[in-house]
Structure formats: structure tokens, C-alpha cells
Design a protein around this nucleic acid. Structure first.
Lengths: 211, 211
DNA sequence: ACCTGAACACCGTTCAAGT
DNA sequence: ACCTGAACACCGTTCAAGT
């Protein structure tokens, strides 16, 4: 009992174990986590400020998996594709984590690193500052939305009697594909890249968009 | 006390009040909600199965603002653009609601209505069932991700010393635009639509996507 | 049918006490 | 410094009792 000669806990082991619980059940409680670590719930507070900080630790854990080292910059499209894919992949490894992250604001270094990489590539490609920010926002929105889609239960939509024939048929065919979410992401990424290219070609003037 | 001659509650008033709480605080508890409705927490269970159903009701409430009546179907691109925009707008009115929605299956009729409308338009345009589901997923991901972006604080990204020149410059120019998020969404929607068109033209074979 | 209040098994967090 | 166990104010949900 009481203080052991060697600490039983560390932020690392807390983050790992919490992430394991979230991966398995989509949520975690401090008693659960403490039990898994063979410790009492109050002990966690010696290493961590509270549940919120544990969630932040898990975010860092997921983001650290993003590799930017070997980005092929032979073309900006290819570079963006690789960064976005890596980003999506690291989130998709822990899909159930995403809903826990969206309520907070993302602003740590590990995340900024990714946006920096995108900015450099897009600048090189010739995007002006304004278009560059739109492009990053569009990519970010799409990746995040797609990761959320991957996080959703496998039956995202449940059609009922009133549903249209077209929708039901699409669901019947598509929803049993275990890679549906990933395929949609990859196709969508192509779609976005193709569109960004045309944005680059026409953005010399201030793109007037009807609101 | 006990049963009143006229019911004090309805699913409608429960949904309205819960949404008000979420808009204000980003979350809600049953005791809070009950208090706001001048009722005891257990009374809610006469109208609703539990907290989960209340979340679904809020989804319906947000979605019901989407108008599909006057969709201009002169072209499928225009129809999709209108549906997606209306979809984004109604979510953006309740940004704090979005994180609560992401972990549940969509069962609400009002929500399914929107996907039905998209499915019909896309079928008419010539998408086959598989591509159709990808197209809906891509649109949904992008709209949801963009709504999350709109939900974020006005300073979405905070550059630090390590940030690249390109990124900082883009942030300086772009972040003070109060309509940045909406503009990005509208530009991105164009981008997505242009890309979907090329998807439609090439999807006769099963689009092989490298994983 | 619809509201109440008591009750249950939880939860996150605090804190004195131990080494 | 680091763990424990008791304690606190919560939470979602159930249910007998009232009309």
C-alpha cells in the first residue's frame, strides 16, 4: 500500500491504457482505467489534472503517428495526397477516439506540424495566401469529416419504409463493404485534389462566391 | 402534483429546450433539462426512452430547418449544391450539437429525408449504386467537417515560432475575415461538385483505388 | 396517461492519511 | 513523491405511488 518505491503510473501508461479502452468501448471512465492499471481512481490525479488531460494525451498519441518525413514532393498533388492520407490514417486507427476530440479545440504542436507541411507544399504550388488558407480549410474539413464517417457505427444510415428506392439500393450494396469508409475517403481526396487544381488555375482574381 | 389535465411535456418541447441548453453550454444533463422544463427528471421518461433519444430528437430539430421544397433540379450539380448548402447552414446554426451526433446511427426521419433527396438527384444524374453511396459519403463528410470548422473558435490555428512563413502569412491575411469559414465551404463545395462530375464520367468500371 | 419522489448503481474529483 | 480509502456532489435510469 501507499507510496511504492517505483511509481506504478506514468502519463505514458495512462494514455496507452485509456486509448486501449476507447478503442474497445468508445469511451472510458476513471474507475475503469484505474482498475485496468491496478490502481485506485484517485491515484490518477498524481499524474494528470483530470479526465480532460487524459483525452489530450490520447490526441497526442494519435497525432504522433503521422509521418511527414518521406513526403514525395515531385508534384504538389502527390504531396498533399500523402499528407492528407497519413493524417486520415492516424485518426482512423482510433476511430472511436474522434468524437471525444471534436468537443475540444485542436491546437498542439503535433497538429500544427501537419498544417505547416501543407502550407509549404501549397505555397510552392503557387497558391496565394488567401487561396492557400481556403485550400487548407477544405482539406482539413474533408479529412476530419471522413474520419468521423469512419468513426460512425458500421450502419451509419438505417433506411426505413419511406426511404427512396435509390437510397435503399445504394445502402444494400455499399454498407457491407468493410472498406467503404476508406474507399470513400480516397475517392473523395482525388475529387478534392482535382478541384483544388482548377482553383489554383483561376484564383488570380478574388474569387467572388455568391452567398 | 401528479398527472396534470394537460401534459406539461412533449417531445417537441423536450427537443427545443435540450437544443437551447446545448447551444449555450455544449452539453446537457437530464436534471438540468428537467429543471428548465419545471418538471422532475423522471418525468422525461414518459415521453422519451432516454438521453440517446433526446439527442436524436435534436438532430431532427436541426435537420427540419433544411428545406428541400424548392430545389432547382435543372442540373444535378445545382440541386446537390442547394441541398448541401442548406444542410451546412442548418448545422452551422448549432455547431455545439455536432460532437454529440457523431457517435450515433442516423435513424431520424427528418435526417434521412435529406439523404433520400441526395440519392434521388444522384441516381437521376446517372450514378450507379456504389458510386452513389461514395458520393453521398463524400458530400456528407465535407459538409460535416466544414460545419465543425465553423464551430471552432475564430482563431482556428495559432502559429508559433516554428511555423512556416507560408502558413503564417496565410493566417495573417485570412483569419480576420469573419466569413472565412463560409467562403471556404462554398469554394470547397464547388471543388467537390467538379470532382464528382468527373467521377460520374469515369465510374462505369469499378473504380480501382490504390490502398 | 403522465407527474412525483425515493432509490440504485454509477461517475469525476478532493483530501486527509499513510510511507 | 505517490498510493489509498472515505467522502462529496453529481449523473442516468427505474419504479411504486399518486391522480
Amino acid at each position: 500500500m501507499a507510496r511504492p518505491s517505483k511509481p506504478k503510473l506514468s502519463t505514458q501508461s495512462i494514455a496507452d491504457t485509456a486509448l486501449k479502452l476507447v478503442d474497445a468501448h468508445g469511451e472510458f471512465t476513471l474507475p475503469q482505467l484505474a482498475k485496468e492499471l491496478s490502481v485506485s481512481a484517485s491515484s490518477l490525479y498524481n499524474h494528470v489534472q483530470g479526465k480532460t488531460e487524459i483525452i489530450e494525451l490520447m490526441r497526442g498519441q494519435a497525432m504522433s503517428a503521422i509521418s511527414l518525413a518521406h513526403v514525395d514532393s515531385s508534384s504538389w498533388q502527390e504531396a498533399v495526397r500523402q499528407i492528407a492520407t497519413s493524417y486520415w490514417e492516424s485518426y482512423s486507427k482510433h476511430p472511436k477516439l474522434i468524437p471525444l476530440l471534436t468537443s475540444h479545440t485542436v491546437r498542439d504542436r503535433t497538429a500544427l506540424r501537419v498544417y505547416d507541411a501543407l502550407a509549404k507544399v501549397l505555397e510552392q504550388a503557387g497558391f496565394n495566401p488567401s487561396s492557400l488558407l481556403h485550400a487548407i480549410t477544405i482539406i482539413d474539413s474533408f479529412v476530419l469529416g471522413s474520419a468521423l464517417d469512419a468513426a460512425a457505427p458500421s450502419v451509419v444510415w438505417e433506411a426505413d419504409e419511406e426511404s427512396s428506392h435509390a437510397f435503399k439500393e445504394a445502402l444494400n450494396g455499399g454498407l457491407r463493404d468493410p472498406h467503404r469508409s476508406e474507399k470513400s475517403f480516397l475517392i473523395g481526396l482525388k475529387v478534392v485534389l482535382a478541384g483544388l487544381e482548377s482553383l489554383l488555375l483561376h484564383h488570380t482574381d478574388d474569387h467572388s462566391v455568391r452567398t
